[in-house]
Amino acid sequence: MVSVPASGTTPFTRSIEDAARAGRRVGTTLVGPAVLVVIAVNILPAFFGFYSSLRKIFFFGDEGFAGLDNFRSLFADPLTWEAIGRSLIFTFGALALAVPLALLAALAVRELGARGRILLTILLVPWAMSPIVVALLWKWILLPSPGGLFASILATFGMPPANLLSNPTWAMPTVIAVAVWRTFAFAAIILTAGLGQIPKDLYKAAAVDGLTAMERFSRITVPLLAPSILIVLSMLTISYFNEVQVIIGLTSGGPIHSTTTLAYQLYLTGFVELDQGRGNAIAVVMFLINLVLIVGYVQLLGNKKGGEG
């Protein structure tokens, strides 16, 4: 697994400069393969994609340089701006649902002790499933006919079958809920670990001071959990912003565009309509938004850590 310098001598037995030089050489050798693979498979296609976004390519036919035409027509199209808006609604809607759920789950896991581990394990099962499989599964459950599971549950409460995926108001919350169903427990793991880091003595001291449960939560748990929450937020933000399989599988972006996020727009334009120049332009826009989100979170994380010394 690890390549070793042939000499067998170790850096710290040599003079300091030698050691530094040898260390750099070994370090570079060890990091090299990972960097090369990542650059070859991620960065090169990214550049090639950027190049393609400047060309007019339709159905695999490259019709030449197009300058910024793809971007111009993209931003002139009101649907693009709506799609960006819906991406933000999807992303932050999912966060607003997933993070509190994950926090509740983490608190429950802590409270339940040994049984908490079982609960966490159960909650994590959907996370082990393929997104496309999850979409299929929920499509089947939400089948709006009397034989559907969801429809039958509604029927036992005397309600008519509801077709959530065909309802312009409900389609978005539904795809959000399905995405959260698959992923919220992942956040719960990290928050559980974060809770585990909080010294129990703090709670005991607070109890002695007569703080209520609510006060303990807001004055101890929340501030000390903040770094973990930020990590959860950053990981889930990226994951939700790029989510596409659940939307492909459940709503195809409809009804009336109500679930057409930017990620889905990319899929539709590039893979269905085969307007590949424009598709690559959307990919570039998505990448830039991702970058902004990441840099934002890294800043926040940095400040947080710095602030706490």
């Binding site: 990972a34 960097v35 990542v38 650059i39 498979v41 991620n42 960065i43 296609p45 990214a46 090639f48 994609g49 393609s52 990226i238 790029n242 596409v244 990620a263 990319l266 899929y267 590039g270 590949q276 598709g279 690559n280 959307i282 990919a283 998505m286 990448f287 991702n290 970058l291 989100l293 990441i294 890294v298």
Partner: peptide, 18 residues
């Protein structure tokens, strides 16, 4: 930053060029 950055590239956006 590179390792963190590539985690954010939507991998399906790279499929066409790849």
């Amino acid at each position: 930053v590179l390792f963190m950055g590539v985690m954010s590239i939507p991998s399906y956006a790279l499929l066409l060029p790849t």
